[in-house]
Design a protein around this nucleic acid. Structure first.
Length: 587
RNA sequence: GCCCCCGUAGCUCAGCGGAUAGAGCACCGGCCUCCGGAGCCGGGAGCGCAGGUUCGAGUCCUGCCGGGGGCGCCA
């Protein structure tokens, strides 16, 4: 089932084609009608005709009588479209019957690599990892729902010079002690201890340097210790991911070390392509369009003057691997905005080397920073970065407090109370992160994100829980509804009758679901889905205020509204699910 | 110095080249024997500045101002 907007757009397209093939109808939601087509204005210019005439010609040519009850030219040449209630009713029934809620899988599925989260071994996950992990997770879920073949990649920082000192520190304190420290998640303590030995002790520093060489040369004992660090760190990351409720697993880890064997090939092939330049001892590529502070060409250093490979080499190897081995046609990098230039340089070098063929798209899904109330990077009072687990635990604990304050937790047992607090707290943090345009910085504010009012996770979860509450009550009133269960009520889709303005508004709102997901995926912007869901929730509450469901005037209306409201709950739950946010039955 | 991102209501944010720039919070005023008031209805208040492109600019271009970030061997 094509969406309402898509259907209208299609019909208008044929009308526009009669005037000039390929001209865009520019269909948009309207505050004066349900939709408006603005394409006539631009087309008039190209045809050298009056906009109003063009609009009239479009209206005359368009076959819309089965979809619209009113089509009129307005203003300078807008075409306002009011869809017929019968069409809304028909479409909502179809949607309610569909287990995919009208969301069609992509016509040509792609294999999409999404790289996100990327914590560093033996380093604590902090708020900086929050956005990448949460945004990447939502993108994976949405892409997957549209039928794309999603390959998640967690580019864990598991290689490089710091590992010399980390391994020496591990050797010093003994593996058992190290494992004990790492397994309880005290990665910061471990890292800092290694760091301070490195800074204070010249002998340790020298051992560390030698250890790096041993690591790179594949010394078995060194590699074994390295694996201890990596494995226990990943175990810890998994705990954080479980708490956060994201899809990442061990299978998605493709750390920097994975690409080690490919690095010489990267350099050799760049050289063979004549792109490599030796500059101040380092092997560089100079992509077009990048300059440094002196205005000189800016290099991408692939091999350092000491012979070691730079991270650019790894990033280039990644691109090749994803294109050649993973066979991906779309690469998404969920990485902070500050790394924009580095990534753009890598992409450009990959293009110059012919590693990014036509048909493969690559996109930096950039995001801004998380700011504190003072509008500076969020930090603890001590000035250190905030541990992600601490932040998540606080979210859950604050959510539990909020529930207790409202007195809504009385009829929940301890287990459910805890589960709901978790869903609310984590949901609040995720929604706050996802609902803002990702490229902007956003201000982290506990009170606002945990509020049950306004554009928040808890508000959406509440709208969902209220609907579920209707069904619980309906079940006690009339066991037949209970037997039907929630999802099977959708089979009563044929009961849906759109009669009141509020029902119509809710119906139209529901019908925007599919395109909301498509828009969000197209722009790699979960915030677009957030905005849709929030709009639907507010439309629902208006409906709910004015259209009694259980106390509907007659049985037919009651059944219709139950089905309508059930569909709303499904959209809210599924939509939140695509954002990685749980929708509890009650709260 | 060069490059990138951001600047919309008191605050936090939406706005895909189109009509009168929208929400939420806060504030003010209404509503309600309310299926979960964690509600509903209404009100005031805004596009950093200056040019330009366009029939039409918050949106595109240029310059300036303000904030953040980046700028060769860390990742």
């Amino acid at each position: 089932m094509p969406g309402v907007a898509a259907l209208l757009s299609e019909r208008l397209q044929s009308a526009f084609d009669t005037l000039m093939p390929g001209s865009d109808p520019v269909l948009r939601p309207s505050d004066r009608a349900d939709f408006q087509a603005n394409g006539a204005l631009a087309l008039a210019k190209r045809l050298g005709r009056r906009p109003v005439e063009v609009a009239q010609a479009v209206v005359a040519a368009a076959r819309l009588d089965d979809l619209c009850e009113r089509v009129e030219v307005s203003g300078p040449g807008f075409v306002n479209l009011v869809v017929s209630t019968a069409f809304v009713q028909r479409s909502v029934r179809t949607m309610a019957e569909d287990h995919r809620l009208g969301v069609e899988p992509a016509a040509s599925p792609e294999r999409v690599v999404v790289t996100y989260s990327h914590p560093n071994v033996a380093k604590e996950m902090h708020v900086g990892h929050l956005r990448s992990t949460v945004i990447g997770d939502a993108l994976c879920r949405m892409l997957g729902h549209l039928g794309h073949d999603v390959v998640r990649e967690n580019h864990v920082g598991d290689w490089g010079t710091p590992f010399g000192m980390l391994i020496e520190h591990l050797a010093d304190i003994g593996e058992e002690a190290a494992v004990a420290e790492l397994s309880v998640g005290d990665l910061t303590g471990f890292y800092q201890a290694a760091r301070s030995s490195f800074d204070a002790d010249d002998a340790f520093k020298e051992r560390s340097r030698r250890r790096v060489v041993l690591l790179q040369s594949g010394d078995p004992d060194t590699l074994r210790m390295w694996r201890v660090l990596v494995e226990h760190s990943i175990t810890y990351f998994d705990e954080v991911y479980a708490k956060l409720g994201v899809l990442l697993t061990d299978d998605d880890v493709k750390g920097e070390s994975f690409y080690n064997s490919m690095l010489p090939g990267v350099v050799a092939d760049l050289d063979a392509a004549g792109l490599l330049v030796k500059d101040e001892g380092a092997l560089c590529v100079f992509p077009r369009g990048f300059t440094n502070r002196e205005g000189d060409p800016l290099p991408l250093i692939v091999q350092k003057s000491d012979g070691g490979f730079g991270y650019a080499a790894t990033d280039l190897a990644c691109i090749r691997d994803r294109v050649d081995s993973v066979r991906a046609t779309r690469l998404l990098y969920v990485v902070g905005a500050p790394q924009s230039q580095h990534l753009q340089m890598c992409f450009e070098v990959a293009r110059m080397a012919g590693w990014l063929p036509d048909g493969v798209t690559v996109e930096h899904v950039a995001f801004g920073s998380v700011l504190g109330a003072d509008h500076r990077m969020l930090r603890t009072r001590a000035g250190t970065s905030v541990k992600l687990v601490d932040l998540l635990d606080e979210a859950v604990s604050r959510a539990a407090d909020a529930m207790a304050e409202r007195g809504r937790d009385a009829d929940l047992d301890a287990e459910e109370r805890h589960a709901v607090a978790h869903a609310l707290g984590i949901g609040a943090v995720k929604y706050a992160d996802l609902s803002t345009d990702r490229v902007r910085d956003y201000v982290f504010d506990w009170d606002r994100m945990l509020s049950f009012e306004g554009d928040t996770g808890p508000y959406l979860q509440y709208a969902h829980a209220r609907i579920k509450s209707i069904f619980r009550r309906a079940a006690s009133d009339a066991p037949t509804v209970a037997e039907a269960g929630t999802h099977e009520v959708a089979e009563q889709a044929s009961a849906i009758v759109i009669a009141t303005p509020e029902e119509r508004a809710l119906g139209l709102g529901l019908l925007g679901y599919a395109s909301a997901i498509q828009d969000a995926v197209e722009a790699s912007s979960p915030s677009k889905l957030c905005a849709y869901l929030y709009g639907l929730a507010t439309t629902f509450t208006t409906f709910y205020e004015r259209c009694p469901v259980l106390r509907a005037p007659d049985e037919a209306t009651r059944r219709s509204r139950l089905a309508l409201v059930e569909t709303t709950a499904r959209v809210l739950a599924e939509g939140l699910g695509l954002l990685g946010i749980e929708a509890p039955e009650r709260m």
